[in-house]
Write a protein that binds this DNA or RNA. Structure first.
Length: 512
DNA sequence: ACCACTCCAG
DNA sequence: TAGTACCGCG
DNA sequence: CGCGGTACTACTGGAGTGGT
């Protein structure tokens, strides 16, 4: 069956909002028409009627846009309906202010594949752009409402205050260091990250550690009751934006101003507890008064320099255990819920040559649902163990394929079906169909993770004998017709890639 | 005690 | 989190 | 006809819940 409830702030609310906007406009138009009908007496030819229709359509869609935008600022149906009833469309935007204690939908970033693209896309920003480390943790909005009241909201605006009490304490404590803002209400946009504070500077731990050991209120109570020792990790709050300070919403202020105020609010970092996201300002050459006549003229050296600096910073961020960089136009405002062109994310796995890429063998599959009914999806892929001639499963893949590929490969693999999981295949998965393996696909992933279900590397890991390895966010890249299953990535190579990654991220990853 | 299921993070 | 398909708008 | 926004279909890991 299909599930309709996915995003709390999504499909259903959006429909309701659009309908509300339309109803409001039509209601007003109806009132207007009645008045007009009273004055005139049946003159309007067909042409003016259709022109009126088009104009009406435009008014409706504009109203819908206004309400949708207002909702991203203050996602409360009650407030919107009340404003609509009392003051019409105009009143809605006015009523939907950012208020500490109520979440704003977080601004999102577009993927971007390297320094050249960053330069091309942000060249229009006269104020330049800032590159910030992209920390691999949980996105959070921390609200201090004053009088010791606080709230934390997740990326999807769930209230996760209880889960991140430490983060609240960190922000409160750090704010006290500011002479002028110590008692101000504030809303900060940040990333909460698992860290090891035994080292200086604090070592950033992988996302998996945060996911497995971030304490929930209930879980913590349970652990305390049973073992006494809470298996929780320390977290550090990396702040990268401020949306409200004192009495003022900063959502419409340019990033340059928001970052200044963020510095003012947190003049002192608390190492390993609250830090500013590592960042650098890039001022673009060749923009401004001179650039009008000499379009691509001077500044080539500066441009090369910028590429080099940006690429270096990307490598540094990866070395520090981050996902890559966020590059943001300094003259941009905060656009709630928008995947904006003003924010670009450059991740390691987007950049050619920096991604983990594996050559794997399709060994089984399931039947897809919905749009993909009738095709195989997902596919189960495996690495080889040359010593035993076995195939060990690594991950399921369902992304990166075209529909045409699905059609072709489903037909092709239906000729390769075998009755059961072949003897030389090691996996805990229960595929719907099993294949006689014959080819190799190149698969790209963001990271290698410890897995309780996948067999590759099981028993070969020094740090953990009960788990195998898998890929985070696997996607299909291309067929490798030049390879046969015996030439696929071996489990030992996979284990070696994992240990290189572990070196980069440091020890302290998830264990049992 | 264990399993199936849902929900949540990415 | 990812990529792809699809639909409506200009 | 191209673009942007949305919907769809999925993944790895946890915590939590409710039933047997």
């Amino acid at each position: 069956g299909t599930r309709a409830v996915n995003l709390r702030i999504g499909a259903t609310d959006k429909l309701v909002l659009a309908s509300l906007a339309k109803a409001s406009v039509l209601h007003r138009a109806g009132v207007g028409l009645l008045a007009a009908a009273g004055r005139e007496s049946g003159t309007g030819p067909a042409s003016t009627a259709s022109a009126g229709e088009a104009a009406m359509k435009q008014v409706v869609s504009q109203a819908q846009e206004e309400i949708a935008t207002a909702y991203t600022m203050r996602p409360s149906m009650e407030i919107i309906v009340k404003a609509l009833v009392e003051g019409g469309i105009e009143a809605v935007s006015a009523a939907c202010h950012l208020t500490p204690g109520a979440p704003v939908l977080p601004m999102l970033a577009r993927p971007c594949n390297g320094a050249q693209e960053v330069h091309a896309r942000l060249a229009l920003s006269k104020a330049g752009f800032v590159a910030q480390y992209k920390y691999d943790g949980m996105r959070a909005q921390v609200h201090l409402m004053g009088h010791g009241e606080a709230k934390v909201f997740s990326r999807s605006c769930e209230d996760s205050t209880e889960q991140f009490e430490d983060a609240v304490r960190a922000v409160s404590a750090a704010l006290k260091e500011s002479e002028e803002h110590r008692d101000d209400p504030i809303v900060v946009d940040c990333e909460i990250v698992a860290v090891d504070r035994a080292e200086t500077p604090a070592r950033i731990l992988p996302f998996q550690t945060l996911a497995t050991k971030a304490k929930t209120a209930a879980g913590q109570a349970k652990k305390n009751a049973s073992e006494g020792t809470g298996a929780s990790v320390d977290v550090c709050v990396y702040v990268f934006d401020v949306l409200f300070l004192g009495t003022r919403s900063l959502v419409h202020a340019p990033l340059s101003e928001r970052l200044e105020r963020l510095r003012a609010a947190f003049p002192k970092q608390v190492p390993g507890v609250l830090e500013h996201a590592e960042q650098r300002l890039f001022c673009l050459p060749n923009v401004g008064a001179v650039s009008a006549e000499s379009r691509s003229g001077g500044g080539e050296a500066e441009e090369r320099e910028l590429h080099k600096d940006l690429s270096n910073m990307l490598m540094e961020s990866i070395g520090a255990g981050c996902e890559g960089l966020m590059c943001k136009a300094m003259d941009s405002t905060y656009e709630p819920s928008k995947r904006s062109d003003a924010w670009l994310k450059v991740k390691r796995d987007y950049v050619a040559g920096l991604a983990d890429s594996l050559d794997l063998v399709p060994i089984g599959a399931w039947y897809g649902n919905g749009r993909k009914a009738g095709w195989f999806s997902p596919w189960l892929l495996a690495a080889v163990d040359p010593a035993t001639q076995e195939l060990h499963c690594v991950c399921r893949v369902m992304s990166g394929f075209s529909d045409d590929f699905y059609r072709r490969k489903t037909a092709e693999y239906k000729e390769k079906l075998v009755d059961a999981c072949p003897a030389h295949v090691r996996t805990g998965e229960a595929c719907s169909v099993w294949f006689d393996p014959f080819e190799v696909w190149e698969i790209r992933g963001a990271d290698i993770t410890l897995s309780p279900v996948h067999a590759a590397g099981l028993g070969k890991l020094a740090e953990n004998t009960s788990r195998g390895l898998s890929l985070r966010f696997p996607r299909f890249l291309r067929e490798r017709p030049d390879k046969t299953p015996s030439g696929a990535t071996t489990v030992d190579e996979f284990v070696e890639m994992f240990s290189r990654q572990a070196q980069r991220l440091g020890a302290g990853g998830p264990s049992e």
